[in-house]
């Protein structure tokens, strides 16, 4: 065999390896492309024009909260857990923002940081209960979900409060898709995470807890860190939600617990832990928004919207599982 042939063969092997090891990511990106095309078609039929800058801006702004909390959920899912308290943390962050953030730079920066810290703290509580208390993640976070929701209602019993316009326009500019920068930042966070010691620990924990420990990895710390990161990201999502709504509501976050899981699943992450990509989750979050948009333009009765959303999800998951099984078999 000639040297070039050997190099060529190695290159194609690398490609098949990459594809096989990142089936979830590849499928999520493919799904995103499909969703954009479908959306464009639905839009064209309805408006005889293609979606433009306005649609891009509103899509990105509407998806940012889900991107953030989906990423938070992803950290926990990698450890083979689930964080049901995501919505509760968002509620509380949202309520705190509406009550406390005032029209000065100091207040905006100070309270944003404080709220992020509180989110991380709430995540830390989850993590401690799960990792040190050795309790089931679902049970713990189901309980803390209610607690955090309750705290949010105490902070802001009625929808109201206010968010300074400057604050809103920095986070969600209504005219330009500047929030794409934040999407990029989230992707970079994942990139760095995946290449950090913390990332190795959390992934190792999700692969096999016993083996991780035998490798000298502090699995307790890894689990606590994953929940803390989830709380932090959910608080950031709550801030975005407040900025989009320009006022606070202590219940707006509720639906995000489930949609964060949907984004993770559509993003090709394995719910059994240890496998998946955060970039896929970002794509998954956008697909989730696009499905809603497509349904909107297809004139589907809003009453049936969740029915169709569910249908999409099932089809996507089944197809994804089939394709990834096929690809893995071929790569062996």
């Amino acid at each position: 065999m000639s040297a070039e042939a050997a190099i060529e063969r190695r290159r194609t092997r690398r490609l098949t390896h990459f594809l096989a090891q990142n089936v979830g990511l590849v499928l999520a990106l493919a799904m995103l492309v499909m969703a954009v095309v479908l959306y464009g078609a639905a839009y064209w039929i309805e408006q005889t024009a293609l979606p433009g800058m306005f649609e891009l801006t509103s899509t990105v702004n509407n998806t940012m909260a889900l991107v953030l909390c989906g990423m938070g959920q992803a950290f926990v899912v990698v450890t083979r857990g689930l964080d049901l308290s995501v919505g509760g943390v968002m509620d509380l962050a949202n309520a705190l923002a509406a009550v406390h953030i005032k029209d000065s730079v100091g207040s905006m920066v100070g309270w944003s940081l404080a709220i992020l810290a509180i989110g991380a703290l709430l995540g830390l509580v989850n993590g401690l209960l799960v990792a040190v208390g050795r309790l089931q993640p679902i049970l713990v976070t189901l309980a803390t979900l209610s607690i955090y929701q309750g705290l949010a209602i105490r902070v802001l019993p009625q929808p109201g409060g206010s968010i300074p316009p400057v604050y809103s326009s920095v986070l969600v500019n209504p005219n330009w898709p500047t929030a794409l920068v934040y999407v990029l930042v989230v992707a970079l966070i994942w990139y760095a995470f995946r290449r950090s010691s913390l990332g190795v620990s959390i992934f190792a924990l999700g692969n096999d807890e016993q083996a991780a420990r035998a490798n000298g990895i502090d699995t307790v710390r890894a689990q606590i860190a994953a929940f803390t990161l989830s709380g932090l990201m959910s608080a950031a999502a709550g801030l975005f939600l407040a900025a989009t709504a320009t006022a606070g509501d202590a219940t707006t976050g509720n639906g995000f617990t489930l949609s964060s899981i949907v984004a993770v699943v559509l993003g090709g992450m394995n719910l059994f832990g240890g496998r998946g990509s955060g970039v896929g989750v970002i794509a998954g979050a956008f697909v989730t928004t696009m499905i809603v948009n497509i349904l909107f333009f297809s004139n589907i009765d809003p009453l049936y919207q969740s029915f169709y959303e569910g249908l999409f999800l099932v089809i996507a998951v089944v197809l994804g599982a089939l394709i990834s099984r096929l690809m893995r078999r071929r790569s062996r």
Binding site: F203, D208, A211, A212, G274
Partner: peptide, 14 residues
Amino acid sequence: TLLPWMTVAENLLI
């Protein structure tokens, strides 16, 4: 004690 869904390289140099 290998981690199944990580690459050989990741396992060797963990």
